[in-house]
Structure formats: C-alpha cells, structure tokens
Amino acid sequence: MQDKIEYGKTVGDVFVENPRMSVRGANVYYADKQAIHDVDLDIAKNQVIAMIGPSGCGKSTFLRCLNRMNDTIDICRVSGEFKLDQDNIYSKEIDVVPLRARVGIVFQKPNPFPKSIYDNVAYGPRIHGLAKNKVELDEIVENSLQKAGLFDEVKDRLHESGTGLSGGQQQRLCIARTIAVGPEVILMDEPCSALDPIATAKIENLIDELRENFTIVIVTHSMQQAARVSQRTAYFHMGHLIEVNDTEKVFTNPEHKLTEDYITGRFG
C-alpha cells in the first residue's frame, strides 16, 4: 500500500514576469473522477516548458486544456482560469476555433491527413483565410516546411500523399501544418514517443529553433528529452503539480522529495 501523500502547495517558481499563458486554480474532472487538482502555472514567452511525470499523472490532460481540446470529450469538465495573454480562454466571448489557431497542438502519433503534403500544410491557412491567392499560399507552405526542417526532403514531391512519408517526416509535417496557421503557442503531446532516435534528434533540434518564434509546451516521458529541450520543467504527480523550476535545477537539485524520487528513477 502506498502511504497517503500530503501534496500541499507547488514548490519552486510557479509565476513568471509577463507570461504568455497563465493558469490559476485549474481543476479537471472526467465524470466523477478528478484528474487535475488545483493547479497554478505560468508559461513564459519564447520558452520551452516541459511537463514530466509518471503515466496517468494528468500532464496530457493539462496540456489539452490549454487549447480546449478537452471540449471534444463529453464527460470532461474544466474549471479555473486559463489566460492566453489577456483573454480567458474558457469565457463565453472566446470562440474555440480562432483559439486553436492561436494555440496549436502536435500529437503523440503523427496524424497527417490523407491528402498531399502541400494540402496538409495548406489546410490551416485555407480554412482561416490566411492567404489571398495561390502565390501567398505557396509562400506560407514553403515557409512552414522550411521552419519544420522538412522542405528540402519533400520539395520535389509536394503533391504526393503525406501518409507516404516516414514516421519522423510525418511528425515534422504535422509540426509544419501547425506552424502554417501562425500560432503563438505550440502544444506538443509526447511528439517523439512514436519515433526512432534519429528522427527524435531532428525534432528536438527543431523544437530548439522554434523557440525563437513560438512558446512551446511539451509533454514527455523521456527525462533526457526534457533536460535537452526545455528551459523550465513542471513535475506532475497524481493530478497535482508538485514542482516547477528551471530545468537545470529540477534535474540537478530538485526541491521536492517526489520529484527527486522520479528523476532518480525510483518509480514511474
């Protein structure tokens, strides 16, 4: 039997100056089961924040709250204040469609549409009317593929199916597709867990480059990956946010006993 753990308040630096997103008092329920308990967290601009923790600790659930992806799940209820810049994203005035254009998401398993590479990337700009004509659209597609580091590999076959690419290329295509809409924040839900080490390295380099223009929130199971790509790290445990600190501090000198246990591999 596990001992009853007193979670108490999150340790470390929860708040930052001038955050891109800020979350206060977040609670999430699946039907009667509470998945997230009273989480406060700021997400700083142009930084990568990593969320780590054992399976089922609520880090993906939390991530999906940040662009209201949980709306698609009937039994999911979210309370608390989630702010993107100054807008409360769960308020009635906010329309979820433009919100998701501002906060993009990349999933665990690459999920390119069964369309051509070009159409995959052009999909977002088309539905949001970002390009006035074909020339502009071509430009957006090329730029996005460039930024995702995929353009040179696919420039000769833009009109072949996106599902014919390798897993790593598909994932970068999904990142390009997200970038094409011009989001402020990119959420990544274990983007490398279905990929081999070489493809993973490429994506990690990419994340580092993307930080210049975007704010990135990444959920990962790999502590090495969190250490490599992020500036801040948040440790979740059983739906509680245990510790938030600079990545270096979390991995060298964690403040909380549970964090230490997790990163030294005592459980999880």
């Binding site: 662009n67 992806m69 698609t72 469609v97 433009p98 919100l99 998701r100 254009a101 993009g104 998401i105 990349v106 999933f107 398993k109 999920n111 390119p112 549409f113 069964p114 369309k115 999909y123 977002g124 539905i127 949001h128 999904c174 597709r177 997200t178 809409v181």
Partner: peptide, 27 residues
Amino acid sequence: VPNSLREGAYGLGSTKSETIKQVIFPA
C-alpha cells in the same frame, strides 16, 4: 476514421463542418 485525424483538424482550428467536409468525408 481514426480519431487522431479528427483531433488533428480540430487542433488546427477547424470547425465541425470543415472537419467533416475536408478530413473525415474524404477519409
């Protein structure tokens, strides 16, 4: 049609009918 395609489309800010017309229906 795999749910991941649906989520992919919603994640890019598609409305329900855009998702159905452009992603789910072709698939």
